[in-house]
Design a binder for these strands. Structure first.
Lengths: 360, 360
DNA sequence: CTGTTAGCGCTTTCAT
DNA sequence: ATGAAAGCGCTAACAG
């Protein structure tokens, strides 16, 4: 592997000049540039990121903190991040927290040690996380670019990208009410106050708007997984007056809930209407296809990546937020109350239409 | 951030001693160790991976090359890798190739530049890839630990982990034949010769074993995705004598195929039986639940990680391979030929039982 | 068992 | 516009 010295020698210049050529960190005469580039090419020179990182403390790495790459939503978001960052020669270091606050702090520390140039922190899936938030805020104070997905880091003026989940949830409830439902439950994650707070609020807001009183028994919290959805639905079904419709915190949970209904011989949507959240690829393929609130996962990731990139360039720029739209995708797990037929609707295919963003 | 010098000074030893304590790279007296550790703790010293990487050319990073993290199989495999590597303080750099040979070479180069200590290369999804294979073989010659998932790098004696996909595919065909099917199609990826060659061979082998002649028209290749599955099924359905059962190269494709059937008003499994491959989490949740050949994705990743770890420790050890079992999981997308009822089976739940491995 | 001495390959003032 | 020199923080012979 050729070093910067080899190139310098061959081009008849000093190492610093070569460095400048590669980093465009100072004006260099055109002819010198060409000589250097030529020499570099002949030697198949490739800058050593470690050395350059050590000297400049820029590593071209950014850390992406998610709860679990196995969640299709996270995976899609991750691709949005990776694809965007890759174009600027950054690599993405993906770490999973499994929603565990302890693990989250650990991985945060780990990637910090590694000298990443920035962080993208997606849904932390936790309730009281002041300690973590403080850690993150400290990173920011040290000048580390941080962007969050979702605006859960309210204490600080942080760059964030989020979706109008509250509106999405409200739209889902509107839809259910239109179909005649009043007994509408909500299955949230244990830390609904965290990431999913918007969905939670949208649910409540819409219900109140329609003059439906909130019922404690209709708001259950569970694991954000198919198993969790199943378990939560069991509880709902055991209720004396079980709901006729339920909005879930994400599609995985919705799928689990549907499964639970089937086990009890309750057909969806005839016996009960269910709405998911996210619109993961399988939502459209499940049978019946899942009515869900589409979140622009890929876009969310891509925007977040753009935001870190931007902040790394302009560390002192005012903080900015991007807010993307969610969209209710009506498929076939919702039907009018007390009616046999599924709510028919042409939109059986794709989803996740345009997303307008604010500033950025 | 404290440096190794700070710690050395405070502990009254030389930097090299501190280094030795942290890396256990030479015997150090117990009392010295304690002094160093204490000093380090007081200063909150954390070794700088960049500096250490530069000096030692060990970075504690390994590259994981997959086609797409959005594929649930890959995501699960990735978790297996990450979880295992993490325990030894390695981080995993995940890169996607999207099945594109050009991109694959690029990302391979990129992570090589970054100085990863080893590679795990999963299904390259490509046919003629001699150039890439040569690149990889060169890496190995330079002494870089490489382990592949699947044994497609036959030219070299490389460490690999794979599953008995051929047996799995054969078992699927056996199952279909038992149900009375003879007209069994296979939907493969474009590069079925690549990763999926085992499934392909298992299909053919089993068919021949049962005295069923292979038909060109029944072996179609497509994109490895739900869209691809849909498209391929369209072609199959357009055939004058369409198959009564089809084995697909993976669950995504199977789901797409089922979808296509539904669009044509053909019920699965009544009108046609379909078997997937992988047993992704959604396979059990789809309706009807998908009969599929379970691959131990997580285990595959975990084993691969163990193999790189091992090779990094013992660069000259003889190459080893781990072969895990696949398991046919009979759910409800397969039914006897010309019969109305779905093939009932208790096994409606989990899957992917024990997996015995060979050497390792 | 421990210290000394050189770097690893690059960036970055400070000059010119 | 370019060069010289001094590290970035750590490891690795080489001594002893």
């Amino acid at each position: 592997m050729a070093t910067i010295y080899d190139v310098a020698k061959r081009a008849g210049v000093s190492p610093s000049t070569v460095s400048r050529v590669f980093n465009k960190t100072a004006p260099i005469s055109q002819k010198t540039i060409e000589r250097v580039l030529k020499a570099a090419q002949e030697l198949e020179y490739d800058p050593n990121p470690l050395a350059s990182g050590l000297a400049s403390s820029r590593t071209l790495m950014v850390g992406l903190v998610i709860s679990d790459i196995q969640n299709p939503f996270s995976a899609t978001l991750a691709r949005g991040v990776q694809d965007t960052l890759e174009r600027e020669r950054y690599i993405t270091i993906i770490v999973n927290t499994d929603g565990d606050p302890v693990k989250e702090l650990e991985v945060l520390r780990e990637i910090y040690r590694r000298g990443v140039d920035g962080f993208i922190i997606a849904p932390p899936q936790r309730g009281d996380a002041t300690a973590h938030n403080n850690y993150i805020i400290n990173l920011m104070k040290e000048g580390l670019p941080v962007v969050t997905i979702g605006n859960w880091l309210k204490e600080a003026k942080v760059d964030y990208v989020t979706s109008r989940a509250q509106d999405g949830a409200a739209a889902a409830v509107d839809h259910l009410v239109e179909l005649g439902h009043r007994d509408i439950a909500f299955i949230g994650g244990y830390y609904t106050r965290g990431v999913a707070v918007g969905r939670w609020l949208g649910y409540q807001e819409a219900l109140l708007k329609h003059g439906v009183a909130l019922q404690q028994a209709y708001m259950v919290e569970t694991d954000v997984s198919t198993q969790g959805g199943q378990a939560a639905m069991e509880r709902l079904l055991a209720l004396p007056n079980r709901p006729s419709a339920v909005l879930t915190v994400n599609d995985l949970v919705a799928l689990g809930a549907i499964n639970s209904c089937r086990r009890h011989g309750i057909e969806v949507p005839r016996g009960i209407s269910i709405v998911g959240f996210d619109d993961i690829p399988f939502a459209a393929l499940s049978i019946p296809p899942l009515t869900t609130v589409a979140q622009p996962a890929y876009e969310l990731g891509a925007r977040a990546a753009e935001l870190v990139l931007r902040r790394m360039r302009e560390p002192t720029a005012p903080s900015v937020q991007a807010v993307l739209n969610c969209q209710l995708v009506i498929r076939q797990t919702t039907a009018p109350l007390h009616t046999g037929a599924a709510h028919q609707h042409p939109n059986d295919n794709d989803s996740c239409g345009d997303n307008d963003a604010d500033p950025l």
